[in-house]
Design a protein around this nucleic acid. Structure first.
Length: 275
DNA sequence: AGACAAGCCTGTACGC
DNA sequence: TGCGTACAGGCTTGTC
């Protein structure tokens, strides 16, 4: 399931593969993937070139030469793939954007993901639809003091705050568990009880875990649908300390990893290392 | 066969 | 009463 490291890996892949190319056709075969518009609305892109690609949390924004911003969110199973235009279509291919001899394809079995044209941008140049997002998890301003403030006076679990895209954008279920482990903080701990030193460790862990995952090209799970733009798998799943490892020994102390439900989601932690 | 996994939005419930 | 916050439910389908 694409989170910040996977989306950043896709961003870099798209920048490498398709930047500067001219869009010569847009074909929508899955209307649900463009549900904010009539299916034909994406045709406004024809004749534009891809100018740059930005990422805000888990959103990708493809800036086009005509001034249009194409926004993508992969949700759980969406993929953006670059193919030669004659390549056979994968099942669940919902949108095809022709780029000369190549093609950008949106593939999404569960159809939670979507593409849409931004209605406009705010003063900072961000699409208005993304106005509710908190600071990006890799934003340098997200220091210990800032994290401590985000957690203050919130009675909900630490992990619920990490997953709240209005508080911090980009963290999903896998990395929330890995960040809590690296910071030695229990994911179910009430946010308002986190001390300043613990908030400092959370801040450091957000940066270090996500940066390491980006270097590794993200995480590709056995069932999860994440792959890079050319079909590459990520390698960070081999470095998961706790996520998906319930019952296995903690890599630090050997205590069995505990699996519980927090905020309606599975959570994994070491009951000895994490307080 | 049916529960489960996931992110995000919406609607509802609740506490101050 | 009203506001902000918290949480359950819905969407979807491949996998176990």
């Amino acid at each position: 399931m694409p989170e910040l490291p996977e989306v950043e890996t896709v961003r870099r892949g798209l920048a490498r593969e398709i930047l500067g190319r001219e869009i010569d056709a847009v074909t929508v075969t899955g209307a649900r993937s463009v549900r904010r518009h009539p299916a034909e609305a994406l045709a406004v892109l024809v004749g534009d070139r891809f100018v740059s690609i930005d990422r805000y949390g888990k959103y990708l924004v493809v800036r086009c030469s005509g001034g249009t911003d194409l926004v993508a969110h992969l949700r759980m199973s969406g993929q953006l793939r670059v193919h030669d235009s004659g390549d056979p279509l994968a099942p669940h291919t919902h949108v095809r954007i022709g780029l000369g001899d190549r093609e950008l394809r949106f593939v999404d079995p569960r159809t939670f993901g979507e593409l849409f044209i931004a209605a406009g941008v705010d003063a900072s140049g961000r699409p208005v639809e993304l106005g509710g997002l908190g600071p990006d998890a890799l934003d340098a301003g997200l220091d210990g003091r800032a994290v401590h403030q985000l957690l203050a006076r919130r009675r909900t679990a630490v992990k619920a705050v990490l997953l709240d895209q209005r508080a911090i954008s980009g963290i999903g279920n896998i990395y929330a568990d890995e960040i809590c482990f690296a910071a030695r903080v229990r994911p179910g701990r009430a946010a308002e009880t986190v001390t300043r030193p613990q908030a400092g460790r959370l801040s450091d862990s957000i940066a270090s875990v996500l940066a390491a995952a980006v270097v590794a090209g993200g995480s590709t799970l056995r069932d999860a649908r994440y792959q890079g733009v050319l079909g590459e798998s990520g390698r960070f799943q081999d470095h998961h300390a706790v996520y998906g490892r319930g019952g296995e020994p903690c890599p630090t102390c050997g205590t069995p990893i505990r699996r519980v439900r927090i905020a309606g989601r599975s959570a994994h932690y070491c009951p000895r290392c994490q307080r």
